[in-house]
Amino acid sequence: MHLVYPVVVAALLFSAGVYGVLARRNAILVLMSAELMLNAVNLNLVAFDVWLRDRLHGGQVLTLFTIVIAAAEVGLGLAIVLLVFRNRETIDIDSLQTLQESREGE
């Protein structure tokens, strides 16, 4: 298989994930987009592992590890989103502005 196919698919998935992280207003949608980015990375890893015929199977093993970490991250991320929702009644990222530099003076 021409290596370009999985690699380009991964690149496009990654870009879609970037767009989602930067443009979506709901925090959970941001988490979903982050998952897309991680999946793109996984696909890349597997493709290169197959191409290089890695004896250590580093790519596939790292893919497994990445999946594990992504799962853990989603769990914790959702816990945080729930906390934010409990405190602010909203998970709209645009309205979570307490880190904003104040308008007037210092």
Binding site: H2, V4, L12
Partner: peptide, 28 residues
Amino acid sequence: AALAVALATAGVLVTVLVRGFRTAYAPL
């Protein structure tokens, strides 16, 4: 802005990867 960044990312990545791996074939 997000769209611009995403398109830029896509553009850069795809171009680089296509040019880099044009002759790479994975043995399946």
